[in-house]
Design a protein around this nucleic acid. Structure first.
Lengths: 330, 330
DNA sequence: TTTAGCACTCATATATTGACAATGCTAACA
DNA sequence: TGTTAGCATTGTCAATATATGAGTGCTAAA
């Protein structure tokens, strides 16, 4: 455990380093803590022993270690109110009552990305556990149809499908009716199974050109359960000095392109979660802050990615502000 | 005009530089052209005077200038057949007859990006001139509806909409019916106007809570005509040595995030277009190769972005291969 | 017209230096 | 016992020097 002065010291160092991106020297702190630089150095070296601070080289100032940030986030950081300016910027979005929830979230996150210089990620509400509530098929021309699936939570998935052979409209109608009857209520990621084991045999009985139709629908329906991921402000984050080397940027960009990795951010408990450095699977210099939300029965996840040297208190305040305001009848 | 040997020389230099990314020395060429390095140097200095070659510093080998690439692309480059290996890789996509055109294109482009280390961009078919062919409204719960618009060319756009006040189902039905009747056949980017000037007065007459309903539908319908842009393989391109400095990468990433700039790639004539360096509005080291296509009445644009030091012949062969194969009944 | 030969130039890599910013440690002090 | 002044120590950073090598331009001869 840290004593009072040590706690203060860590707080000062984290916050100063977050602001300036330069190692903090003992001298810079004596004024604030009303003691000599030597005293600070003694305390610093204790915090270094504990693993909360690091030096970039033997005669450098101190920098928070990963563990230091962790400690700061877990024990020191005090929730702060959003400042007026930031709130004002967000308010134009909040007050725009014509925005649907989705748009409210993506617009807010764009602004937050600008304000914080972090990358904003909106993870598509996991539609896996949505259930099919309606299937529509709309003919476009002789050989092309559109299949539309609507889920109970209001997601829409659609797919064009081509049927090369001549198939009677009646057969199509009949097939759709059957599918409609049988897959309503099915979870999206189960649709494939249901089609194969339950619908297929029935279609085979009642529809003439069942092979062709079944295949067309099967391929159309089975890759519906994809997740969507949108990101904004990658550039904002990459402007930070911790990413001023080409290879590091390349690495981060690669990670961003790999949806798998981004998707993984999602699996964790409710509220705001903070993953620092090696906890991220991203990069030791990166922190990911993520938040699940739920409003009007829709749930989703938003996240901010940036250097671990980030303004944690501000980020938390922003995300909480977004969350609060989405409840109020979006 | 260049004589035969000069043409050969330029060709050799471009192709060697494309392969190795190092300035080409006179010595390296004498074997190929069967003369001494001094002779080559004389020719080189002529090509430099003409502006087709450049040096990176006074005693360096030669590098093609922007004009040099231009000349190469316009006069020297000879169309080449796709090599077996590349064709094989694409064939799995081409032969997968269950793929719709959209998927065929995006999958092919992913592969092409891998093969060429370029960034692949698929510009959404400009849906502006699509006409509405059907409007569907599906209720999710008391206050939420989904509006779905299907166009004559088979695009689907959908949007969740919330109606806060209590509105009778009947009113909604009536409104949808009216909208359906009146906007079918309207171009997507005209929908706003039609709603305002034609539909609104009618609804006002027949529907009780017309204000609320009109507003909900209006905001839902008016931003449908967006263009979609998808990119894959940014990282591939950024691995190239011309982008090995942090600021350059940051700049390119910013450009990629700015959809405006990417969109601009589109406006040009048919076939394959090549924009080199300063012609791109992107970066002097960047070339953009873009191709419009049309198949089954759908049209769209695909593009490859990378260093101007790219294998132009291969890129062209690949794009042409994609175009040819999309005609065959996708 | 081509070529051999030589002087010249610049990039790249490595080492050297001085100024500076911090630190750790020790000994003195409250 | 905790705090502080002072000093030697250490590493960064930027500037400067030095050597090496690749490649050119030019000239004069073939």
């Amino acid at each position: 455990m840290l004593n009072d002065r040590q706690t203060k010291l860590l707080k000062i160092i984290v916050e100063d380093y977050v602001k300036t991106a330069r190692p903090v020297s003992s001298k810079a702190i004596c004024d604030i803590l009303n003691c000599s630089s030597a005293t600070i150095r003694n305390e610093m070296s204790y915090l270094e022993e504990t693993g909360l601070l690091e030096k970039t080289h033997i005669s450098s100032g101190r920098v928070p270690s990963e563990k230091g940030y962790r400690y700061y986030v877990d024990h020191i950081l005090e929730p702060r109110e959003l400042n007026g300016e930031d709130m004002l910027k967000l308010q134009t979005i909040v007050n725009n009552s014509s925005l649907m929830l989705d748009d409210y979230i993506s617009k807010s996150m764009e602004i937050v990305s600008e304000m914080t210089n972090l990358t904003a990620i909106v993870l598509g509400k996991s539609s896996k556990d949505n259930c099919v509530s309606k299937v529509e098929v709309v003919p476009i021309n002789e050989h092309n149809l559109i299949a539309i699936v609507i889920t109970d939570k209001g997601h829409v998935e659609h797919k064009n499908l081509t049927i090369k052979e001549n198939v009677s409209i009646n057969d199509i109608k009949q097939t759709v009716d059957l599918i409609n009857k049988m897959i309503i209520g099915t979870q999206l990621n189960e649709v494939g199974k249901v089609l194969e084991y339950e619908v297929k045999p029935i279609i085979a009985k009642y529809v003439k050109q069942h092979e062709v139709l079944y295949n067309a629908f099967y391929t159309a329906f089975t890759d519906f359960a994809k997740e969507s991921v949108t990101m904004t402000g990658r550039k904002n984050m990459l402007m930070q000095p911790e990413f001023n080397n080409a290879d590091k940027i390349r690495d981060i960009i690669s990670k961003f392109e790999d949806k798998e990795i981004v998707g993984k951010i999602e699996e964790n408990d409710n509220g705001i979660n903070i993953y620092i450095g090696s906890e991220t699977e991203f990069d030791d210099d990166v922190t990911i802050v993520k938040m699940k939300y739920e409003a009007n029965g829709e749930e989703g996840t938003i996240a901010l990615v940036g250097p671990k040297r980030m303004e944690y208190d501000k980020v938390i305040a922003l995300l909480e502000y977004i969350k609060e305001n989405m409840k109020e009848g979006k």
